[in-house]
């Protein structure tokens, strides 16, 4: 279980190898790799700068990871998110989940990236030939995160 927020690039193969090294209990690993796209809306972007709230970012990513482990039987997890200035094609975020079975690994990986987008304090500034602009939050991201909301239990009526 690990969370890293860093300026430096990461090596997906090395991270996968490190997470599963010496483990014979893991049957499935799921991996999401986010890259900087060169088109945002109509305009090509030349670069993107990620700002974050140091301290709170690590705390929120840790809480999201803890929530994933509560919901799925996970043997190993890793979240790496970069900040600073990135260019199209650059790696930006990595989520890896490992479990005895594939379903838990695949579902929890999707959950983590959906929740991360709406709960971790990062902000993207896109640079285009017409100047820089802050990316607006998307409703589709909120909807993707909301899919994972658990039905609220009625107080005092816990299952017996």
């Amino acid at each position: 279980m690990a969370v890293r927020v860093q300026r430096e690039d990461f090596d997906v193969g090395a991270e996968l190898a490190a997470l599963t090294a010496g483990r014979t209990d893991i049957g499935g690993v799921s991996c999401f790799l986010g890259l900087v796209r060169d088109i945002a809306g109509e305009r090509p972007i030349t670069a993107m700068t990620l700002e974050h709230y140091a301290g709170m970012t690590e705390k929120m990513l840790g809480e999201i990871e803890t929530e994933a482990r509560r919901r799925w039987p996970l043997d190993a997890t890793l979240i790496v998110h970069r900040h600073g200035r990135l260019e199209p094609g650059d790696r930006i975020v990595l989520v890896i989940t490992a479990s005895a079975h594939r379903k838990a690994a695949i579902e929890s990986c999707e959950f983590l990236i959906d929740w991360l987008k709406t709960k971790a304090p990062f902000w993207k500034l896109e640079e285009t030939d017409a100047g820089a602009r802050w990316v607006a939050a998307r409703q589709s991201d909120d909807a993707a995160a909301a899919r994972w909301k658990e039905p609220r239990q009625t107080a005092g009526k816990a299952a017996k």
Binding site: G34, L50, H52, Y53, M56, H81, I92, V93, I113, L116, K117, T118, K119, A120, P121, F122, W123, K124, W134, V135, A136, A137, R138, D141
Partner: peptide
């Protein structure tokens, strides 16, 4: 206290 717009990470 931190004040910020809706997050856009990921």
């Amino acid at each position: 206290i931190a004040l910020f717009p809706p997050m856009t990470g990921g």
